[in-house]
């Protein structure tokens, strides 16, 4: 532990406005630095590999058919109850597969728990995509069924 020093202004600094001028020098130096602004949406932000965007479904070439086995784990762990899964017998092989999969983005808090618990191999069937543009004109558009969950979200490119 130590007590922090409280600086005082010396008289000559006070008279000649030294510290004010130093402060102005700092802002002046910043004038010539590169701006940190990202010109979104013309410029897309750089997305880090672990970024948790909106959850989506995926398949894997190693597994025939739909990867999701309708085990309901994700819908149980989801703290906001935004996932509904209904299963049907698998078209190829044994077990179940998802017949209906509805994800309500309106309530999703992007916590990533669903991806964490998904038991499918080699990749989780539900995964946190890198898509982050969630705005819709209608609330109902935020309810996504299986078809929409497989599609990548269309992004509009803007000219710089």
């Amino acid at each position: 532990m130590s007590v922090v020093q409280r600086p005082e202004l010396s008289l000559w600094k006070r008279l000649f406005l030294v510290e004010l001028l130093q402060g102005m020098a700092v802002t002046f130096r910043h004038w010539w630095r590169k701006p940190t602004t990202e010109q979104y949406p013309k410029e897309r932000p750089k997305i880090l590999p672990r970024f948790r965007g909106i959850p989506k479904l995926q398949d894997h070439p190693d597994v025939e058919g739909i990867l999701c086995i309708a085990c309901n784990q994700c819908s149980i762990i989801c703290p906001d109850d935004c996932i509904t899964v209904l299963g049907e017998p698998r078209t190829v092989g044994k077990g179940k597969q998802a017949k209906v999969f509805i994800l309500d983005y309106e309530r999703c808090c992007l916590c990533g728990l669903c991806e964490e618990v998904c038991p499918t191999t080699p990749v989780p069937a539900i995964f946190m995509s890198h898509e982050y543009e969630l705005a819709r004109y209608k609330r109902v558009d935020l309810m996504n069924d299986m078809k929409e969950l497989y599609e990548p979200q269309p992004t509009k490119e803007y000219l710089k």
């Binding site: 880090l48 672990r50 970024f51 948790r52 990533g112 728990l113």
Partner: peptide, 22 residues
């Protein structure tokens, strides 16, 4: 906020989210 941005980038790089880290 520029400096904080750097930290948030670190946190995002680790866990995938900037504020709601979980």
């Amino acid at each position: 906020f520029r400096e904080r941005e750097a930290i948030l980038d670190l946190i995002e790089g680790y866990c995938g989210a900037r504020l709601t880290t979980n």
